[in-house]
Design a protein around this nucleic acid. Structure first.
Lengths: 223, 223
DNA sequence: TCTGCAAGTCAACACTTGTACACTAAAAAG
DNA sequence: CTTTTTAGTGTACAAGTGTTGACTTGCAGA
């Protein structure tokens, strides 16, 4: 009942010849990607119908059930897919833990790169975080909380945050994650065409991060 | 254009006692409030159907059109309604511009009070901000940007922010607004029953605000 | 008292929706 | 090669959808 996404990938199975007259390749994959693409536009997950999706993919509605028992199951797969890229950002950050300056530059750059590479995924996370499907919503929040915790752990390793307690670290981690998610959403909003708008937003992201870190040395825990 | 012949038509259909429940109270109001209530649960706006809503309200589907031309129009009304309370927070803040300490305490308290009083409205804003309906989504963003600008103006009046330039003020305003919206959402998430959880979140909100303001005196604009 | 209009009613339309069932072709397994 | 599994197909159905149109009421204003 939990997550059964892992076992679906058979090891070492390359895509091969057409199975049906027209369709070739992993339809499951196609369902996921098409769904993400459709949700990138003006549609929410629970406004997306099974028939609509299968129509777009090019299969008959009932064929959907060969790959997912449910639309909710598809939703979970989308969450899984979308978070893959987001986690990568943390990886990148982990390598640059020298100074606060370098850290800020590193995270902003990494953020920008991953947004550009995975637009639809970010859009999905942002919109369905508070979206209609409880299953999807909860999955996203769990993942996001996990990211936040990981960030807190990474922060603990920074020299200028050495003697902060756990609660305070989580506080600052949540502030950072939320700020970055908000920025990401704004970036998605201005669209890929507006380079200047994007640049301004990334600058803002950098400034906000710097401002936050600026307060750190003067922080005194209240407990 | 309208034909109003009263006596002519008697097409074999007995004039049944089609008793109107005579909802002489504002049905329009009822539509708005019921919609908000329904969206507070596990439903997104574009997952809410006209028939579903009217069924809940207790009128026939077609009667909906007496009040709104569209579901989108209803959506805009919901945005309007929901922002009424949010703006009130800014009003409250405006009265407490003495010290940073007082400001933080004031905004957090005001935030809490308004969330409690207007749960559904906040939930609506949060979820439809990135939701499916483009009309609603854009309306919310415009309002939110307006709030952010207003906050920037208010911040400019604070003594310790006197010589900040506009761009920097907007940067900090957006950081604050986003942080508070995120907190609000978390508060909605823990539910009304969990008093301890709520208290912890409000404490976090206060800490985050304080941390941000702590960095302010050391900020040097980069232009 | 009469009349016009806002706000309700019912019936009907042409769709779309999720899902069940029976069937079939192709690939994988033996 | 034969068999089994997988992933596709078509048909069908009951239920839900937005919207039109014609009709009915009760209240407000003349």
């Amino acid at each position: 009942m939990q997550y059964t996404m892992k076992m679906s990938t058979r090891p070492g199975k390359p895509p091969r010849s057409a199975r049906r007259l027209s369709r070739r390749g992993d339809t499951r994959r196609l369902l996921i990607e098409t769904a993400l693409a459709m949700l990138d536009g003006d549609k929410s997950f629970d406004g997306l119908s099974l028939r609509e999706l299968t129509r777009e993919v090019g299969i008959v509605p009932t064929a959907f059930y060969r790959h997912f028992p449910d639309m909710d199951a598809l939703g979970l797969a989308l969450v899984d897919e979308s978070f893959r890229s987001l986690r990568q950002i943390l990886e990148d950050v982990r390598k640059d833990t020298r100074s606060a300056e370098r850290l800020v530059a590193s995270v902003v750059k990494s953020l920008y790169r991953h947004i550009a590479a995975n637009r639809a995924g970010f859009a999905f996370i942002a919109s369905e975080r508070f979206g209609g499907s409880a299953t999807v919503r909860n999955a996203i929040r769990r993942e996001l909380r996990l990211v936040q915790t990981e960030l807190a752990v990474d922060l603990a390793r920074l020299p200028f945050l050495k003697d902060w307690n756990t609660q305070d670290l989580h506080m600052i981690a949540s502030l950072i994650v939320n700020a970055m998610v908000a920025i990401a959403v704004d970036v998605l909003d201005v669209g890929a065409h507006d380079r200047d708008g994007e640049a301004a937003l990334m600058k803002r992201a950098e400034q906000q991060l710097r401002l936050i870190l600026l307060g750190v040395p003067h922080w005194k825990s209240s407990r």
